[in-house]
Design a protein around this nucleic acid. Sequence first.
DNA 1: TAGCAACTTGAATCTACCG
DNA 2: CCGGTAGATTCAAGTTGCT
Lengths: 296, 296
Amino acid sequence: MQLDRIYTGDSANILRNKERFRSGSVDLIITSPPYGHKRKHVYGGIRPKNYVSWFLPIAEQLKRILKPTGSFILNIKEGATNCERETYVIELVLALRDQGWLWIEEFCWYKKNSFPGKWRHRFRDSWERCYHFARQKDFRMYQDAVKVPIGDWSNERFRSMSQKDYIRNVSGTNSKMGRNVANWLGRKKVYPHNVVVFEKEHYERPPNVLRFSTSCKNYNHSAVFPLELPTWFIKLFTRSGNVVLDPFMGVGSTAIAATLLNRSYLGVEIVPEYAQAARRRVGEARQLKKDSGIIA
Amino acid sequence: MQLDRIYTGDSANILRNKERFRSGSVDLIITSPPYGHKRKHVYGGIRPKNYVSWFLPIAEQLKRILKPTGSFILNIKEGATNCERETYVIELVLALRDQGWLWIEEFCWYKKNSFPGKWRHRFRDSWERCYHFARQKDFRMYQDAVKVPIGDWSNERFRSMSQKDYIRNVSGTNSKMGRNVANWLGRKKVYPHNVVVFEKEHYERPPNVLRFSTSCKNYNHSAVFPLELPTWFIKLFTRSGNVVLDPFMGVGSTAIAATLLNRSYLGVEIVPEYAQAARRRVGEARQLKKDSGIIA
DNA sequence: TAGCAACTTGAATCTACCG
DNA sequence: CCGGTAGATTCAAGTTGCT
């Protein structure tokens, strides 16, 4: 099996190739498939009512290719037809469970820069679903990899600790949750919570809500996701040297993120122009990394 | 039918009373029912596997009581069992559609003050679902009532990118939306479809992500939602003098919000102590409004 | 004063093993 | 092989001090 390749073709066919995509060989699948659309000319253009039956055979192959301890991240959002939200996405979740996938989580990707809405009965659609599926309960998850530095507040706060900071404060409900500020003393890194400052930009990243800017450069492709999105999940679910697969690669964000993080990638893209753009962009990213001497 | 009353009792029974809850009499139903729970001591404690069949008869009555042009807002979030998310919430959505409801929208309530936190295979849950259902396509919606000044919108949107970048980005897409935004950049005005013009001011249509903090004063109730949540939906879907129903009233947030906005309310609460607390809190709110001379 | 910034630990459930 | 039990695993509708 060759790594770091982007195949031009239809995932519904090409994923069945057991030499190119060997069973149990991939650590993470992350993808944003074509969404169901009423209008045929939009990218992909699977009809909502056919969506589940179109996706299931592909998911069957993905299950074969994924390592038993791997994860599958599916970025998707149903549209609205005739005033109603489509149901194919939630039907797909139930169908994937029937196929043997475990539905672990639904992350909310809150899109900071969503376009304004223009509908009388509907607001701007400013979030998408990122489903996390796994093959078995003990999938790999590297939570420490997404820790962030503790805030500057801690210096001041820890200097003047009050009596109450040293005792455990339990909530008034019977939830048994509590906090003890003294336990945070000396901590360098913390789990992601609300506002993360990164290169002077503020990103919000509470546990299962992700807030990134949408991509600035969209390469004439209507569904590019920002690098931060695959980056976050690649850090969370893989380690250096692991393999990441995107069966609907588009212009290659997943492959670029994987490359910058020293992971290998595999991709499939049906539109030749997109596949070509993806290969070029990955090459540029690899060069950039080499030039800058970054060893992640 | 008497208005501004909170009945102590079980919604599964009491909503069938056609004198207390007359057919087609309510403009908005907003509620946060007990979630499915494994733990018995938690409020409500309906088992996930029984949830849909428990809820459907109640929803049938809600459909009877709601005006044809009214809306039903359901705040809920599934938990996790044995490493997987429960499926009863998405099954409920499909079942409610079968019952004749239109699924209009799913708002994301992003709890911006949620704790960080993690378990071996899971981060802390920091968002909940707010489903919007309606009986028919032409439900009432007063978007002006929740408008946001356009200044905030442009500031936030362009904080992280230059306007030139934005034009370049947007004009690369084939979407019509892109041209609208590009136009807007040049003229500082947007098509009226994108922006609400109200008293000569331009307002953005809000997104379908709501950012409210969870309530901190819990009144011995483990699941109080913040006043902002019912307030926002009451403004959006009702006018002064309309009637709002909460069949799982808890300590009365919905009734308080309705009172402060000069709407009438109806409520049902099964726990006598909560019902009593709700009546007391509504009375306090009414008094407060009178004292301060606010006429909303 | 408003806003910010941070996990813990008990209990229910699951599983593996033993009688 | 089945059922019961002990040990392991999983999950949680949160607040509040400080600047």
